[in-house]
Design a protein around this nucleic acid. Structure first.
Length: 550
RNA sequence: GCCCCCGUAGCUCAGUGGACAGAGCGGCUGCCUUCUAAGCAGCGGGCCGCAGGUUCGAAUCCUGCCGGGGGCGCCA
């Protein structure tokens, strides 16, 4: 696409500011901002460049700003109506009709993906909840987060695979099998076992096809059944994994032994107290970690190290692994294991998800998989739907512990922010249907526009403050996506989607679209098309649908 | 005791060095003969946990303290 070559309207502004800054012989560096001022009287955009330059230049910020202003005016030419120095030394840019018209035209023809951040091969492992029960609401947060992260990275040009690590062997599976066996005999599960109703149901379903004395088989059958259920739940939630990686296969294939041997050969393994240890303290862990227990059984950690050896061998360059806060202590030892394998620990990245508390009727629901006391993701989806659930769970930073009040989520489902955003999308679709009915959509349809110049000649400049504000909001998408991806922060997209919808609703109030003056109508239809695409893209990155009617 | 996360409006939370600090929900008041009122506009609501420090400038960075959550297994 031709537009790919030309910088977008914001890049042009930024280049002008950087050029003006360079003339003053100052290095404003990366911290130079191009942002929307808090109030409309302060212009369309502002920059802090002069304030950053002041120390190096050696004159007060406002003086630097005054000198930069002249440079900037010259460089911006017809794009700017005027540039003002304000406050402590901000430069406020008031952009011209022409710039806004070009911006709308550009929005219509540009492929608005973020600048490729690289073409790294990223393996996102997420959820990976034990197949000894259904996915809980907390697991749903990890699911929504991991999937959105994967979508974000794909969008920014990375090669992404989604993987679920299935802990289908080990002590928890054994306990699960014992719990099933107990239910088959109409007994209570063993102490600390799984007492949820689903275990009873599973026992009934297995019925005569299973032998309560064959715990290996029960474990296998039980985890397979749970895996099927988990896959169905996540599929309903809009998530598909490329790979379901079985821990048991790691034991059976000898991968675990091979990794152990490799670590021993590298000199990081020692025997003590009947167990086999990895000297993770050589790589800044608090204490060494057991790989093989005194009873001869490998630990979960040993299998996980072997699993990551496998990821590395498969060619994964970045291994992104969102973990629940209850596993955060695990990160240093895994980084140490990477170092012990001679691999850069930075290739292992584990964003920590804070916990989800479910509150119902003022009561905090207990979350224990073993006790069978938890709210499942299935229940959440049934209660408030996939879109609302995903938006709810993604709205807040993964770093923040959130309480989800189920009653509130249900009762106010109509006021849920996700509907606010979706409504804007549906509203635009309705306008476009109306325009099509009246045969007016042609000029705004992307297919009919060869390039920005042809679009521009057909459009009049947006004049209303609210339509200009909407244009500026839409231009932010690539930067927002890039930031969200870099910071592993999909919640920023929720905020952006909400702000975009708000700007659209204000535009809708002020600006008649169908039936306006021809050039204005064309420009506004173009703005509607661009807004609809922006919202659809943003919601798509969150895994939320963008309906044409509501 | 040590480690991680969080203390921002009545509630749930955005805001990782810039202008008088924001959104949603809840409360109050207006707005549908015109492209969707799941909307818009307005009012009310704040010692940004506390105390120091760095900076021209701090909710944001540093230190200490207080409060909440999580973790410190040869469980996963």
């Amino acid at each position: 696409m031709a537009a790919e070559q030309t910088p977008d309207p914001l890049a042009v502004l930024r280049a002008a500011i950087e050029g003006a800054a360079a003339r003053l012989d100052g290095d404003a560096g990366r911290r130079l901002t191009l942002e929307r001022p808090p109030k409309p009287e302060l212009g369309d955009y502002s920059t802090n460049a002069a304030m950053l330059l002041a120390p190096a230049v050696g004159t007060p910020p406002r003086e630097v700003a005054a000198r930069m202003r002249e440079e900037l005016v010259a460089r911006l030419g017809a794009s700017a109506e005027r540039v003002e120095v304000a406050g402590p030394g901000f430069l406020n840019l008031f952009l011209s009709d022409g710039w806004h018209r070009e911006a709308v035209a550009d929005l219509l023809v540009r492929d608005r993906r973020a600048e490729p951040a690289g073409d790294e091969w990223v393996l996102v492992e997420f959820v990976s909840a034990n197949p000894t029960g259904p996915v809980t609401a907390a697991g749903g947060r990890g699911a929504a987060y991991g999937d959105s992260l994967a979508r974000l990275l794909e969008f920014t040009g990375q090669r992404v695979e989604r993987e679920y690590y299935l802990n289908d062997t080990g002590s928890q599976v054994r306990l699960f099998a014992e719990s099933i066996a107990a239910r088959m005999r109409d007994q209570e599960p063993p102490p600390g076992g799984y007492s949820g109703d689903y275990v009873r149901e599973l026992a009934e379903k297995l019925g005569s096809g299973a032998d309560p004395d064959d715990l290996d088989a029960l474990g296998r059958l039980g985890t397979e059944a749970m895996r099927t259920r988990i896959e169905a739940t996540l599929s309903r939630f809009g998530i598909r994994f490329d790979t379901w990686f079985s821990e048991r296969s790691l034991h059976e294939s000898g991968g675990l032994e091979a990794t152990l041997a490799e670590l021993r050969e590298r000199g990081h393994v020692y025997d003590s107290e009947g167990a086999v240890w990895l000297r993770t303290t050589d790589f800044s862990d608090d204490k060494d970690r057991v790989l093989i227990r005194a009873d001869g059984e490998p630990t979960y950690f040993a299998a996980d190290v072997a699993y990551h050896r496998d990821k590395i061998d498969r060619g994964a360059e970045l291994m992104l692994t969102p973990l629940g806060a209850d596993h955060h202590g695990y990160v240093p030892r895994m980084r140490a294991a990477f170092a012990a394998m001679g691999t850069d620990p930075d290739r292992y990245e584990a964003p920590i998800m804070q916990l989800v508390g479910i509150v119902e009727g003022g009561e905090r629901a207990r979350m224990s998989k073993r006790k069978g006391e938890f709210v499942t993701l299935d229940e959440l989806i049934e209660d408030i739907g996939t879109d609302a659930t995903r938006f709810f769970l993604l709205q807040r930073s993964h770093d923040t512990a959130v309480d989800l009040d189920l009653e509130l989520a249900r009762s106010t489902s109509q006021d849920n922010p996700v509907y606010y955003v979706q409504y804007a999308h549906a509203r635009i679709a309705s306008i476009l249907r109306k325009a099509a009915d009246e045969g007016r959509a042609a000029v705004a349809e992307p297919e009919t526009i060869a390039d920005a110049a042809s679009a521009e000649s057909a459009l009049l400049a947006p004049a209303e403050p609210t339509e200009r504000a909407l244009v500026r909001r839409l231009l932010e998408l690539p930067a927002e996506v890039a930031t969200a991806a870099e910071r592993r922060a999909p919640h920023r997209l929720c905020a952006y989607a909400t702000a975009t919808a708000a700007d659209f609703h204000a535009f809708y109030r002020d600006c008649r679209v169908v039936g306006a003056e021809p050039g204005t109508e064309a420009a506004r239809l173009g703005l509607c098309v661009a807004t609809m695409r922006t919202i659809a893209t943003t919601l798509g990155l969150l895994g939320v649908g963008a309906p044409e009617r509501m």
